[in-house]
């Protein structure tokens, strides 16, 4: 069963992620009063990119881009195998680091600036990611009397986790905007044109290398929706439709926020995420520890 889930992730995640990206673009267009590209547009884009020439600055780019996708797939694989959530988050952070390294090796000003901003983003969302893991631990501790970091046990509680950790859930949704590279927090790389620093971390990637990064983003997004699912999944059957609903709502909200807000400066992003992390995340855990 676990092997099946992991295999399913490795094979199907690009498909699901690509479709989600297509839906995203369609929805965005509709919100702007346009018709928008076909649903399969992201797949056409990747196919096009694979057929293009690769202009490399140096060979390290190759190495780091491949490391990025391998670590992302590894993260998702570990997650869907139901392993340790802490370990999953650590590998996930490592993966993000490879994108920064790739951008730094190019020596191109836009790329390097993107790398710097990417690191600020990591600095912003990392505390919340760690608190999420701690949150799951305290939630299981409050419910079962014995805390655990194992994903399999976290999602088979008698009630959904979100009942115990609503604050953590809100905090996690907040940083999800950074991870999805959506406005107002898409400061290191945006999917929309006309960014003040070209394409940020991906500026110097062309052709097939860019396709690899696109596909790893699809893997990444599916994994992140998986984390959202952890908040609502439990041993009861009704948690499955609930999870699907919550994921759909999250998706819609992300697109809505993307289309209705302007990009903020890095310090605003940094401050707001830390404040949200402290208020919603830390207080939630504190209350659970005190009264749970």
């Amino acid at each position: 069963m676990r092997l099946l889930l992991v295999l399913g992730y490795v094979l199907l995640a690009p498909l699901v992620g690509g479709l989600l990206a297509g839906l995203d673009r369609k929805l965005t267009a509709r919100m702007q009063g346009r018709i928008g590209p076909p649903l399969l547009q992201p797949f056409y884009d990747v196919k096009k990119l694979l057929n293009k020439e690769i202009l490399l600055i140096n060979n390290m780019q190759y190495l780091f881009a491949w490391c990025f996708i391998i670590f992302i797939v590894f993260t998702g694989g570990m997650f869907f195998a139901g392993g340790n959530i802490l370990l999953v988050f650590f590998v996930f952070t490592t993966a993000a680091m490879f994108l920064v390294l790739e951008a730094t090796t190019t020596n191109s000003p836009y790329s390097v600036m993107g790398a710097n901003r990417e690191m600020i983003q990591m600095l912003s969302y990392e505390p919340m990611i760690l608190l999420t893991a701690v949150g799951f631990y305290t939630a299981t501790e409050a419910a079962l009397g014995q805390g655990t970091f194992t994903i399999r046990e976290i999602i088979s509680m008698p009630v959904p986790n979100v009942v115990y950790i609503p604050g953590i859930f809100i905090g996690f949704l907040f940083i999800l905007t950074i991870k999805f590279r959506k406005s107002p927090f898409d400061i290191s790389m945006s999917h929309h044109a006309h960014q003040e620093m070209v394409k940020g971390v991906t500026t110097e990637l062309s052709g097939g290398m860019m396709a690899i990064i696109e596909i790893s983003h699809w893997y990444e997004n599916v994994f992140l929706y998986g984390i959202v699912a952890m908040f609502t999944l439990c041993a009861e059957w009704w948690s499955i439709p609930l999870t699907v609903g919550v994921i759909a709502l999250t998706f819609f909200l992300e697109v809505l926020i993307d289309n209705t807000s302007a990009r903020v400066k890095w310090d605003t992003m940094f401050k707001t995420t830390w404040v949200v992390t402290l208020i919603f995340g830390a207080i939630n855990i504190f209350i659970l520890q005190m009264f749970g």
Partner: peptide, 21 residues
């Protein structure tokens, strides 16, 4: 813009020569 909407055809206006066709 919505009136002409070239993105219907998959056309994207990228600001990056390395991604452009």
């Amino acid at each position: 813009t919505p009136v002409y909407d070239v993105e219907r055809f998959g056309v994207l206006n990228t600001g990056n020569p390395k991604h452009a066709d």
